[in-house]
Amino acid sequence: MNKAIEQIDRLTRDAVQEVFQSMLSMEINPEAPLPLSPDPDGQIIGSVGFIGEVTGIIYIYAGIGFARVITSRLLGITEAEVESGEMVTDAIGELSNMVVGYVKSRLCNDGLPCTLTIPSVVRGQQLSVEGSAQLTRRLIGFRNCKYHLLAEVLLKTP
């Protein structure tokens, strides 16, 4: 289990950096997992699960302000053109899908086949995930200038 969580932790760091670099042309660097800065518009969490030889879920947390920046970069539009909450929700869902798809592909190649769930996204204020005793948990922080992003990995204990 320790080996699996270490592997998924490393893959998640790589995945977030790769997705930001490829799709957003944006550098984002891992850092200590600090709580997200308060955002008057709230927070957003995208999540995708993986089920198989290893089972778990990865959550991506961002403030709505950063989520709008991500959406604008992903779609190649200005922030002013990010017109609806739905646009942001869909973009964060797709971002999460790409991150977890990256992790899943490498797990499969390493002999840990699994399948992905459909992405889901929630928005709100002060969001947090409660893990049960059967779950191993890792929190990874990322920073791009003033913006923070958190990735949380929950892995089911066999």
């Binding site: 899908n97 790409m98 977890v100 798809g101 990256y102 899943k104 592909s105 490498r106 797990l107 499969c108 190649n109 086949p113 992905l116």
Partner: peptide
């Protein structure tokens, strides 16, 4: 277009 690049896929 796929987010999953595993060999089997």
């Amino acid at each position: 277009l796929t987010a999953e690049a595993g060999r089997d896929t």
